[in-house]
Nucleic acid binder design. Structure first.
Lengths: 149, 149
DNA sequence: TAATATATGGATATGAAGGTCTTTTTATCA
DNA sequence: TGATAAAAAGACCTTCATATCCATATATTA
């Protein structure tokens, strides 16, 4: 894959939370997005420390988006979670650069720049909502639990 | 990084061997390319089984390129060593596709296609030789050992 | 205040990638 | 033909991403 599991999960989490207007518990987000619940709990902790989500304990608690989605860029998420992986040499040559290019350097640059451009310009609010069970893009009936209808 | 260490090492290995006209032992390639020798030995074994390199045991032995470099595409190397990683969803969504796109799908497609195109069209002979100690691009004086001048 | 629902934090497991080491096999050549 | 130089093979180690589990803290509501 191109990005780590954590990055993928977090991006999808933020897109999901964008559509919610009340706290959603980890368990439910995990179910809807198909993420291992205990792992998601970990990711939410880290995301909360960074302010990307806000959590609330106790009954009725859960998580909410903690940032303006139009102000959080994919680039920031990727670099926070994985470092500057997008800038690194595609062949792993540590000193790869203009003066000491790797064998693929020249051909790779345009592709890399396209990637950097995309991640730099795209914010969480630019992302399409996922169509998943329990997650309606327009007709959002919040996060009512289907085991208590 | 974009590709696995193994892929990066193997690509650089093949580019290096392209310029050699006599068998080069693992130890020497490892030194020139800055690859851990015992790890390179393992990669060479695998590359040899696939025919990418030819090895010869005993004194004067070593490895040589086993394929026509203009007939080995980067795509084949990457897919052989890592599977179809380039085709996978950038956010890791297993069912991501036209009918069930991930949040980044539409924006990602052009970038992915540029990548696929580059890897599909580029062969080992299209890659620039590395400029490293002991490796002269034009003035190739073979691989004479500098400890026996 | 008791019961419950939720996140928090830390320890631990798991699997794959990356890397090392040692022994065996095979070839060369003096 | 023997000494030596190399690859081959396989066991082992290390690190890291990806989880999993459990005990604890905290908030809500009946």
């Amino acid at each position: 894959m191109m990005l780590s599991k954590e990055t993928g999960y977090v991006v999808r989490l933020l897109v999901y939370l964008r559509e919610q207007d009340a706290p959603v518990p980890v368990r439910e987000v995990a179910r809807v997005l198909g993420i291992p619940p205990s792992f998601l709990a970990k990711l939410v902790q880290r995301a909360a420390r960074r302010g990307w989500v806000i959590t609330r304990k106790g009954p009725g608690g859960g998580m909410m988006l903690g940032v303006n989605p139009s102000e959080l860029r994919l680039m920031e998420i990727v670099e926070t979670l994985e470092g500057r992986v997008l800038e690194q040499c595609v062949l792993g040559l540590p000193e790869c650069g203009g003066e000491n290019p790797c064998p693929l350097h020249d051909q790779w640059m345009p592709v890399r720049d396209a990637m950097l451009g995309l991640f730099s310009r795209t914010t969480v609010s630019d992302l399409k909502g996922e169509t998943l069970p329990g997650m309606k893009e327009k007709d959002q009936t919040s996060h009512k639990k289907e085991d208590s209808p």
